[in-house]
């Protein structure tokens, strides 16, 4: 078995990796996370034993880097209590007036946020989402449908001032 030249992966998938990183950590830190994911992927690439699903492999690495980023951000937050975390600027995309949906995705419970972003921004099936999250396809399905239900409620909230 021989792997395709790494440049092909970059050319074909850099947009997906960048988009996924944006969905998981927000636009401010997305470039760092994507860059880190590519660096790790390049280092690990020759040891890869299969050439199937290289895209899922890249997106799983991106997810792991995003989780490391969140962990790092939590550690550097002075008051490590959940209520302040929700507002900490480094844990999600900063609110953008025109990006209502992203703001709502950012404040989903982390597992739901990751699942819905992997599923729809990464366009991964539930098996791949589950592999990235270290869970089962059934749980991935549930996390995604819970996330979508929350988003739907939010977006149709009649009390919403919009």
């Amino acid at each position: 078995m021989s792997l395709p030249p790494f440049q092909h992966l970059v050319d074909e998938h850099w947009r997906d990796v960048a988009r996924l990183a944006q969905g998981l950590v927000g636009p401010v830190h997305a470039e760092d996370v994507a860059q880190q994911a590519w660096t790790q992927a390049l280092a690990a690439y020759p040891r890869l034993t299969h050439r199937r699903n290289l895209r899922s492999w890249l997106l799983t690495i991106t997810h792991r880097c995003a989780m490391d980023h969140h962990r790092g951000a939590r550690r550097s937050t002075p008051h490590d209590d959940p209520s302040t975390l929700a507002e900490a600027p480094s844990t999600g995309p900063p609110p953008e007036p025109d990006d209502d949906l992203w703001r709502r995705v950012a404040v989903l419970p982390p597992r739901q946020r990751d699942a819905v972003v992997l599923r729809f921004v990464g366009d991964l099936d539930h098996r791949a989402v589950a592999a990235a999250l270290g869970t089962t396809p059934g749980m991935s399905r549930r996390l995604v449908s819970d996330a979508l239900a929350t988003l739907r409620l939010d977006l149709t909230d009649p009390k919403d001032p919009r």
Binding site: W14, Q22, Q35, L101, F120, D125
Partner: peptide, 29 residues
């Protein structure tokens, strides 16, 4: 696979660009 309805299609800010990786085992032009 592409889902029939893509809730995030066209959403989100512009992408920065491809990653900048250092030269590795083989470089070409």
């Amino acid at each position: 696979m592409t889902p029939a309805t893509h809730p995030f299609a066209g959403v989100g800010p512009d992408l920065a660009g491809p990653p900048r990786l250092p030269p590795t085992d083989v470089s070409y032009v």
